[in-house]
Amino acid sequence: MSFRIDQLPKKKYVVPGNAACAGCGMMIGLKILGMALGEEAVLSIPASCAAVVQGLTPKSGVAMPILNVPFASAAAVATGIAEAYRMLGVKGHAVVWAGDGGTADIGFGTVSGAAERNSNIIYVMYDNEAYMNTGIQRSSSTPRAAWTTTTPTGKHERKKDVALLMAMHGVPYVATASIAYPQDFYRKLKRASEIQGFKFIHLHAPCPPGWRYDPAKTVEIAKLAVETGAWILWEYDNGQLKLNPPSTVYVDRAKRKPLKEYLKLQGRFAHLTDNDVKMLEEEIEAKWQTVLALAKAFPQRL
């Protein structure tokens, strides 16, 4: 199913004059979340950029109901909201909107717990690949070699693949998405909202100050991540894992753009040598082989 751009809702779920940085990738995602589920969602937002962008009480820059919650707690709080609604007969979706730090690091226990018990929540991890709210510190979701203030010569470890980890929990729905492909993200949110149980969407969201690039390039860079194969769009839906367009095309390594085109726009990778780039390309290829193997292993919906 695809959605025509002029059929998307016009209501502004992101309200102008909010506290997001210019060119914030996450805000594009939040806007799409509003379009898809704005009238049905109640958000739990942990400590993150998403907590700050709401602006200052008594105003809010996001036109959805939001409970701001402790850093590690969002998946559990949303579980409580979902269970309260079930018991009280309230219709709606308990949605978590959390960053990579709040998900892959400090909140991973509550996320894994909610997944294992199949809590009826939609969890969106917007991934800007570091602690941006506190000023660009490394998270477990920071990619290898990226500069952050706590990895001044580049991160030495690989990026934790949270989406795959969630899929291996055997939950009903896991998807990756990118802010460069809003209709794909929109469709995935809609699909998630049809499913009972734990749903997880891993949203790639570039950050201009954190990745060190001109804020105009947010969408371009997010698109390049997909076109170079560095970010793979896939979906695990009730036991079936499959690639989504346009990543389906990039199974063929020859069709991918050179990784350098993605990296060279970002100051956080400015220190990389050609050899470093080559090594990263090999690591990306290994990730592709893992995803393709899983697609083979999980060919059908259960």
């Binding site: 309200v15 102008p16 004059g17 602006g55 105003k59 809010s60 820059g61 996001v62 036109a63």
Partner: peptide, 18 residues
């Protein structure tokens, strides 16, 4: 509770950032 409601300018007149 000190609640917030959606309104423009939750972080001020952000056009001045431009």
């Amino acid at each position: 509770l000190p609640l917030s409601r959606p309104a423009p300018a939750s972080a001020g007149m952000t056009g001045t950032w431009r």
